[in-house]
Amino acid sequence: MQLSEILTSSCTSCDVDVTSKKRILEKICQLAAQQVTEIDEDDLLTSLLDREKMGSTGIGNGIAIPHGRLPNASKAVAVLVTTEKAIDFDAIDNRDVDIFIALFVPEDSCQEHLDTLQNIAKLFSDKKIIKQVRKCNDDQSLYNLIQQAH
Rank of each mutant, 00 (worst) to 15 (best):
I120G: 01
D138A: 05
V36L: 15
A32D: 02
I130R: 08
P106V: 11
A91I: 00
E26H: 03
C29W: 06
L25K: 00
I28R: 01
C110N: 14
G60Q: 04
S74V: 09
Q35I: 11
R134Y: 06
H67E: 02
K53R: 15
S109N: 12
K22T: 11
I59S: 07
L145C: 05
D96G: 02
K27E: 08
L3K: 05
D93G: 08
R134P: 05
L114S: 01
Q35W: 12
A64W: 10
T46A: 10
K21D: 03
Q140N: 14
A76S: 15
T116F: 11
T19N: 09
A33G: 01
A91P: 07
N137A: 03
E5S: 09
M1A: 08
I59Y: 02
D98Q: 00
I24Q: 02
V133P: 07
D88T: 11
T83I: 05
C29T: 00
S109C: 14
R134W: 07
M1I: 05
D90V: 01
Q35N: 15
R95H: 14
I120C: 01
A86V: 08
Q34M: 12
I130M: 09
R51K: 06
K75H: 15
D93E: 04
N72L: 14
E52P: 03
I92D: 04
L48N: 04
S56L: 08
D108T: 05
I28F: 06
T82E: 09
N137W: 10
A76T: 15
K85L: 12
I24K: 03
K131I: 04
R134M: 07
A121E: 00
I129H: 04
K127N: 12
K128C: 13
F89R: 03
A78M: 11
C110L: 15
T37Q: 15
